[in-house]
């Protein structure tokens, strides 16, 4: 023992772990970092381009070579929410501009020789998207949680077959059945209604939501509810007070995925909706410019359209990380 107390040495201040020194680990790390950076750039480039385009003035948008540095403008957003007409003559435009009762946005538009006639269709389409995607997400998750709970906890005759049947609704690309569904909806008067699309999206999402949530609920030990049952609660009360709080992660993940699907759905929305119920996705590509294709307006529309998904995902990100890795972590 005495031999160990030799001359005092300076404490080690550098790591001697083999995985942190030497050329190989360093190179590996550099390569990893490089790949991550490249991927990030690749993924973000279109988004950045879209943001830039939406902030450009009409002349900068079509400039060749593309302008990286430009004077930002919010014209595109004004264009997006308004319906405008071009003044037939330069003189009329100048006269209109000379008026001093113009609002700031009217002035902006007047600079382009245009006049605002009314509020555009986009806000309404965005609202339709919200109503349809929001309601169908709520239904998908609500029914999903209830049936996933039932599948997870009760002995249901033909459980496996039922679950397979539910999943089978996703074995075909939905677009393949657009025509029959269109005809059916026509016949039932469901086309061009909120309810029609909500029903459709809920149906599509439900299989996904049942399967995903069943996985989460299976992971919650049933002893918790049984404890609540003997503690004097009914099945439903136990479900609400004990199961739901623990399924939050799964519910959050499912909500995000269902919302993204319903929010982004294009084909059925294009076919089954027109003016009154048209959602945003089919409207964006068909934005009519005044006298030209307004790329900046389309970019602005895409940007605005993107925001709700970003916000929902961001708000639920804490749960999502656990959600997408579920099953990988063992609960204590």
């Amino acid at each position: 023992m005495g031999t160990r107390a030799s001359a005092p040495r300076a404490p080690a201040t550098i790591s001697t772990r083999v995985d942190k020194v030497g050329l190989r680990p360093k190179v590996t790390r550099a390569i990893r970092a490089f790949v991550v950076v490249i991927l990030t750039v690749l993924i973000l480039l279109p988004v950045v381009w879209m943001v830039m385009t939406s902030l450009k003035s009409p002349s900068d948008v079509v400039a060749v070579p593309p302008k990286i540095i430009f004077e930002p403008s919010i014209e595109s957003f004004i264009f997006l929410v308004t319906e405008r007409v071009q003044f037939p003559t330069r003189q009329e435009a100048d006269e209109f501009r000379a008026r001093d009762d113009l609002k700031w946005y009217e002035e902006k538009v007047a600079e382009r020789g245009q006049k605002i006639t009314r509020v555009g269709d986009f806000p309404k389409q965005l609202r339709n998207s919200f109503i349809i995607a929001g309601t169908s997400t709520i239904f998908s998750v609500l029914f999903g949680v209830l049936s996933a709970y039932a599948f997870s906890r009760f002995r249901i005759p033909g459980e496996g077959d039922l679950l397979f049947f539910i999943l089978s609704t996703r074995m075909l690309p939905p677009v393949a059945v657009t025509i029959p569904i269109f005809l059916m909806y026509r016949e039932l008067g469901l086309d061009n209604t909120y309810f029609g699309l909500i029903l459709l999206y809920t149906t599509f999402n439900l299989s996904f939501s049942v399967w995903l949530l069943k996985g989460f609920i299976d992971e919650i030990p049933k002893e918790y509810e049984e404890a609540a049952l003997v503690d004097g609660y009914t099945r439903l009360q136990a479900f609400r007070k004990v199961v739901l709080p623990q399924a939050v992660t799964g519910i959050a993940a499912t909500t995000v995925f269902c919302f993204i699907f319903a929010w982004n759905e294009y084909a059925f929305a294009a076919m089954l909706t027109s003016d009154a119920t048209r959602t945003a996705p089919p409207s964006i590509p068909s934005i009519q410019g005044v006298g030209r294709i307004e790329w900046e307006t389309i970019a602005a529309a895409s940007l605005v359209f993107l925001m709700p998904v970003v916000i929902v995902t961001f708000a639920l990100r804490k749960h999502l990380l656990r959600g997408v890795t579920f099953g990988a972590i063992r609960k204590g």
Binding site: E226, A227, L229, V230, G232, Y233, T234
Partner: peptide
Amino acid sequence: PAERDVAFVF
């Protein structure tokens, strides 16, 4: 279970 008024230790 609630009506039986038992306590269960798991």
